[in-house]
Amino acid sequence: MGIFIDNNTRVLVQGITGKEGSFWTGHMHSLGTNVVAGVTPGKMGQEIDGVPVFHTVRQAVAAHEADAAMLFVPPRFTMDAVFEALDAGIRKIVTIADGIPLQDSLRIRRAALDAEARVIGGNTSGVISPGKAMMGFFPWWIERVYKPGRIGVMTRSGSLTNEVTAMVVEAGFGVSTLIGVGGDPVPGTRFVEMLPDFEADSETDAVVIIGELGGTMEEECAEAVASGSFTKPLIAFLGGRNAPNGKRMGHAGAIVTGGKGDVASKAAALRKAGAGVADRPRQVGGLLLDALGARR
C-alpha cells in the first residue's frame, strides 16, 4: 500500500466541476483512485466522470464517507475550503493552489495541527503512489518519471521533481510514493513530518528529498537521521547552491536571508547526519545504488 493514499482511500474532490478539477478527476480515476464524491457550491446534482456532485462537504461526507479531500480550489478560497473539509471530519487534505496568501497558509497549517490532520500543499502537484492512486495532477502515464518502485520521494518543486525522479528511474529504481509538500514558505506539511510514514512503509527502501534554498525543512530531516528516528537511506538534491544571498529565486519559500537557509549549510547538516547529498540531479541515482546496492 502507498503512504497517505492508496486505492482504498475514499477521495472527495472540492472544486470538481472546474476545468482542472473535472479533467484531473478523470486521470485520478484512470490511475485507480477511489474518487467517491465531488463538491462545488451550487452544482449539486451534476456528475463528473460518474462522480456525484454536492453543494457542501458535509453533505458529501454524509452520503459517501469520504476520508480524504482533494482541492482544486483557487488560492483565495483555499483556506475556507480546507476549514470546510476539516469541519466535516476529513483529516487528509491536498491543496494544489499556487498563490495562497501567506497568513492564510499559517492559519491552514495551524488548524491542521490542532485537528491532528495532514494538509499537503499548497503550490504542489500533490501526492502519488505510481500504479495505485493519486491526489493531484501528475501525468502518471509518463513512465520515465512515474514508474512504480520502492523509492519514496518528497519535494518542494514541480519540474525539478520530474528532472530528479527521471534520474531515479534511469538508475533502475521506481517510486513508491511521491509527496509534493509544495514551494510555499509555510507548507501545510513539512518533509520531516512524513518521514515516520516512509519509515513504517514496507514498500519503501529509501527516500529522496528534493529541497532547495530557504527555510529549515532539510535541516529538520538531517536531525531525524542524526537522532535515529529515520533509519532508511536518505538522499537529497538541493537546488540553489549558487543562488546569490538575498535574491528570491523561484519559489516564494526559496530565499536566503542573513546566511540562514543556504544550500551549503543544509548539505553540511545532511552529510553530517549520514544522509547522501547529490550536487547534481544525475548523481541521485548513483547515491541510491551506493546505499541500496542490489536491492533495486
Binding site: 519540474s159 520530474n162 537546488g239 549558487n242
Partner: peptide
C-alpha cells in the same frame, strides 16, 4: 526555463 526549482538548478549548473 520552466519551474522555479528547475530554473534554479539550471542556474547552479551554469555557474558550476
Amino acid at each position: 526555463c520552466a519551474g522555479a526549482g528547475l530554473t534554479t538548478t539550471v542556474y547552479d549548473l551554469v555557474i558550476d
